[in-house]
């Protein structure tokens, strides 16, 4: 029993470490309801293309909230640059929607989507 426990502890520890490090990956790639970021990215994109700026601002707010919920779950998985990149995209997206700049808003949104995709690597 003692020998079994002495083997079990390191094996269990290594499994927990893998789960902590890779848990974020499964969150990003899952299609569960908790992972609503891609959905909101699409919504904001549709709003910008239709130039519904008020709706775009509303959906961006929801996207921002979803991102703030997702961040603690992926922070042990993701690299800091990708997380900072998404934060910057959100800030610039907010400004471009406020300025009603369709081109800039779409560029930021696409970059944000790309950063999100890169988190899967």
């Amino acid at each position: 029993m003692r020998k079994f426990i002495s083997y079990l502890i390191p094996i269990l520890s290594l499994i927990i470490f893998v789960v902590i490090m890779q848990g974020g990956y499964y969150y990003i790639t899952s299609w569960s309801e908790r992972n609503i970021i891609p959905e909101y990215v699409d919504k904001v994109k549709t709003d910008i293309n239709a130039e519904r700026w008020d709706k775009a601002e509303e959906d961006l707010h929801q996207l921002d909230l979803a991102w703030k919920k997702a961040m603690p779950r992926i922070q042990y998985h993701a690299e800091m640059n990708a997380i900072d990149g998404i934060k910057e995209n959100l800030a610039r997206l907010s400004g471009s929607i406020e300025a009603k700049d369709r081109g800039l808003a779409l560029a930021e949104l696409n970059e944000l989507a790309e950063h999100w995709e890169n988190l899967k690597n």
């Binding site: 390191p10 470490f17 922070q75 800091m80 997380i83 900072d84």
Partner: peptide, 24 residues
């Protein structure tokens, strides 16, 4: 991203992984 907490968690992972591998 709370860098401090991430570093603590990653350090714990690194430390104990190293300990396990060193014993191995």
């Amino acid at each position: 991203m709370n860098e401090g907490i991430v570093v603590i968690v990653r350090s714990i992972i690194g430390f104990f992984t190293l300990l396990i591998f060193a014993r191995l």
